[in-house]
Simulated scan of single mutants.
Amino acid sequence: MALVSMTGFTRVSGTFQTYRWIWEIKTVNGKGLDLRLRLPPGFDDLDRPLRQMTGERLTRGSCFISLNLQQEANAPTLKVNEQVLDAVLATMKKIEKRVDAKKPSLDGLLAIKGVLEPMEDEESEETRAALTEALLESFKEAIRDVEEMRRAEGAALEQILLQRVDELDALTKAAEDCPARSPEAIRDKLRAQIDRILEASSGLDEDRLYQEAVLLAGKADIREELDRLYAHCEAVRGLIAEDRPVGRKLDFLAQEFNREANTLCSKSNDTSLTAIGLELKATIEQLREQIQNVE
């Protein structure tokens, strides 16, 4: 299984009767799964199923979901307001003997404000249920698209991580083979340091200096750090091969890599070994930056 990235984006459109919509999903890296939904008014009932479907597909990352829903306007339907019409006719009857005027025509009556009023189309429960189902089916397509994009980016991430691990392996081997680590080189360097100290102060005990030199030589030994660096490289390769989200474990390993590199640099007894340690730290940082995007 390839690694899965936490970065993805998709936009999916759909239609149902007079409705048109666009689902938009954007995911970026995050410590856990953080869902943020933006739904049109009156569609809050979609919140729970959307969260459930997303949680079944994604395990980590900040996920932004928005629904842009529009309804095409139908031709207006008009109805007669009987109460207003009755009131108009009653008033006309009262004043028809007092005013010499023609009887009102039909179009004249209908033109009076309030006699005709638009009818609001009432959406049936069946229509609303069918719309909700269509929206959720469309969302399933969108979340699948995001998942596929995250997998594609994860496959590219896998190659980058493996390349970085190979570089760390090579640097660890270079530190192991560094001439400054040979017993002869360490012995010569300690002897030169002791000679300088003895020349500066002839009153020092040579046996005591020898004991201190042994302790210093032990502290300068980086065998354990090298073994752990090798082990961490193998652990990263093993995690990448697992069929589950491993981003958190990889992040922990990146911290452990850095800890060993820091110790190696602090124990270094030569500039050449220090240079390798610094290059290790730089490569570890590149590895860590890429790991931040792994689910």
Score class of each variant (00 low, 15 high):
residue 88 V to E: 09
residue 100 D to Q: 09
residue 53 M to A: 08
residue 145 D to M: 13
residue 110 L to C: 06
residue 105 S to F: 09
residue 77 T to N: 07
residue 130 A to S: 04
residue 132 T to W: 06
residue 58 L to R: 03
residue 86 D to Y: 06
residue 152 A to Y: 07
residue 68 N to P: 01
residue 143 I to R: 14
residue 53 M to C: 04
residue 137 E to N: 10
residue 127 T to H: 14
residue 155 A to W: 09
residue 102 K to T: 06
residue 54 T to S: 10
residue 103 K to S: 11
residue 87 A to E: 09
residue 114 G to H: 00
residue 80 V to R: 05
residue 136 L to K: 04
residue 78 L to W: 15
residue 138 S to C: 08
residue 99 V to W: 07
residue 74 N to D: 14
residue 150 R to M: 05
residue 123 E to G: 00
residue 118 P to T: 00
residue 60 R to M: 02
residue 107 D to W: 04
residue 112 I to W: 02
residue 108 G to T: 11
residue 155 A to T: 10
residue 92 M to A: 15
residue 136 L to Q: 06
residue 146 V to E: 04
residue 100 D to M: 03
residue 59 T to P: 04
residue 126 E to C: 01
residue 140 K to L: 12
residue 108 G to V: 08
residue 122 E to F: 03
residue 105 S to D: 10
residue 84 V to W: 02
residue 155 A to I: 10
residue 103 K to H: 08
residue 63 C to T: 01
residue 141 E to Y: 09
residue 74 N to L: 15
residue 128 R to N: 00
residue 135 L to T: 02
residue 95 I to T: 14
residue 87 A to I: 05
residue 90 A to N: 12
residue 50 L to P: 01
residue 98 R to L: 13
residue 156 A to L: 14
residue 72 E to C: 07
residue 82 E to K: 15
residue 156 A to T: 15
residue 149 M to W: 05
residue 93 K to I: 06
residue 63 C to Q: 01
residue 143 I to M: 13
residue 98 R to T: 11
residue 134 A to N: 07
residue 125 E to F: 03
residue 83 Q to C: 06
residue 58 L to K: 02
residue 122 E to N: 10
residue 69 L to F: 04
residue 62 S to H: 08
residue 105 S to K: 12
residue 70 Q to M: 14
residue 65 I to R: 00
residue 82 E to V: 10
residue 55 G to R: 07
residue 78 L to Q: 10
residue 75 A to S: 09
residue 116 L to Y: 00
residue 56 E to R: 13
residue 83 Q to Y: 06
residue 89 L to H: 05
residue 94 K to G: 08
residue 87 A to N: 12
residue 84 V to E: 04
residue 107 D to M: 06
residue 136 L to R: 03
residue 52 Q to N: 09
residue 64 F to E: 13
residue 79 K to V: 10
residue 76 P to I: 02
residue 71 Q to G: 03
residue 89 L to D: 06
residue 142 A to Y: 01
residue 98 R to S: 12
residue 100 D to N: 11
residue 143 I to G: 04
residue 88 V to H: 08
residue 51 R to D: 02
residue 127 T to C: 08
residue 88 V to Q: 08
residue 74 N to M: 15
residue 112 I to A: 03
residue 105 S to G: 12
residue 147 E to H: 13
residue 60 R to Q: 02
residue 155 A to Q: 11
residue 147 E to L: 15
residue 116 L to K: 01
residue 56 E to C: 08
residue 118 P to Y: 00
residue 150 R to L: 04
residue 69 L to V: 02
residue 118 P to G: 00
residue 96 E to T: 08
residue 76 P to D: 04
residue 73 A to Y: 03
residue 148 E to L: 14
residue 121 D to R: 11
residue 74 N to C: 09
residue 63 C to I: 02
residue 138 S to F: 06
residue 147 E to S: 15
residue 81 N to H: 09
residue 152 A to R: 13
residue 139 F to W: 07
residue 63 C to E: 00
residue 77 T to I: 10
residue 94 K to T: 07
residue 79 K to I: 11
residue 67 L to A: 00
residue 139 F to L: 04
residue 69 L to M: 07
residue 134 A to K: 10
residue 115 V to P: 00
residue 136 L to H: 05
residue 149 M to C: 09
residue 132 T to H: 11
residue 121 D to E: 09
residue 74 N to Y: 13
residue 121 D to V: 05
residue 106 L to W: 11
residue 98 R to Q: 13
residue 53 M to F: 07
residue 102 K to E: 08
residue 131 L to W: 03
residue 155 A to D: 11
